[in-house]
Amino acid sequence: MKHGFIAFAVLASSVGVSAVHASAGSINYSGEVQQATCDVAVNNHNVFGNNVTLPKASSSSLSKVGETTGTTPISITLLRCNRGAMPVVFFEAGSGVDALTQNVLNASGTATGVQLQLLDTANVPIRVGDMSQLAARGVGTVGSGNVTSQYSVRYIATGVSTVGTVRGSVTFSLKYE
């Protein structure tokens, strides 16, 4: 009799466990397999941990909204790309980007009233996170395995600036056409 009770208890507990494993929903995954990839260097340095230093700027040169100064070149070199690749550099929106101005925020600096504005090869402001970059900012077809794009960054006043440090960061990705 004791064995029958134990068998019934084991059977009853296994029925209870199966209810715990009932379907609760689904997860959809997406990704992309690309034909070509490249390594990246910024200003001829490995992309990770790279810093771009802008010149010191006078707060008087950033006293009105929209004033700019301190334009500093940035080269993004795509290395060891597969021949025929057509990469496009895309500067992504994120927590370090002002959603209104689409400039890079002075996220950890002490100056106020100033952001960082990215410029494309033609010195046209890049609206960080804007999908139009994909159409307008291609670096061309890779023939030799390496290709370099020239960009710039500069200070831009969002109000009367105060003295202090300016520090920001932006994430970029590569889209292969």
Score class of each variant (00 low, 15 high):
Lys2Asn: 12
Lys2Ser: 09
Lys2Glu: 11
Ile6Leu: 15
Phe8Pro: 00
Val10Met: 15
Leu11Asn: 04
Ala12Tyr: 10
Ala12Val: 12
Ala12Thr: 12
Ser13Asp: 03
Ser13Ala: 14
Val20Ser: 11
Ala22His: 08
Ser23Ala: 14
Ser26Gly: 12
Ser26Lys: 09
Ser30Cys: 08
Gly31Asp: 13
Glu32Ser: 15
Ala36Gly: 14
Cys38Pro: 04
Cys38Phe: 06
Asp39His: 03
Ala41Asn: 10
Val42Gln: 07
His45Tyr: 10
Asn46Arg: 09
Asn46Ala: 12
Asn51Ile: 11
Ser61Glu: 07
Leu62Tyr: 00
Lys64Met: 07
Lys64Gly: 00
Lys64Arg: 13
Val65Tyr: 15
Thr68Gly: 01
Thr68His: 02
Gly70Tyr: 09
Ser75Met: 08
Thr77Phe: 06
Leu79His: 12
Leu79Met: 12
Leu79Asp: 13
Ala85Trp: 04
Met86Cys: 05
Met86Ala: 08
Met86Ile: 07
Met86Lys: 14
Phe91Ala: 00
Ala93Gly: 14
Gly94Ile: 00
Gln102Gly: 01
Val104Glu: 01
Leu105Pro: 00
Ser108Lys: 06
Ser108Glu: 11
Ala111Tyr: 04
Ala111Asp: 06
Thr112Asn: 12
Thr112Cys: 03
Thr112Gln: 15
Thr112His: 15
Val114Pro: 00
Leu116Met: 14
Thr121Trp: 04
Ala122Arg: 05
Asn123Lys: 06
Val128Asp: 00
Val128Asn: 02
Gly129Thr: 02
Gly129Asn: 03
Asp130Ala: 05
Gln133Tyr: 01
Ala135Tyr: 06
Ala136Ser: 12
Ala136Asn: 11
Val139Thr: 06
Gly143Ser: 10
Tyr151Phe: 13
Ser152Glu: 05
Val153Gln: 03
Ile156Cys: 00
Ala157Gly: 09
Ala157Ser: 08
Thr158Tyr: 02
Thr158Lys: 04
Val160Ser: 13
Ser161Tyr: 04
Arg167Ile: 07
Ser169Asn: 12
Ser169Thr: 00
Val170Tyr: 03
Ser173His: 05
Lys175Gln: 11
Glu177Asp: 07
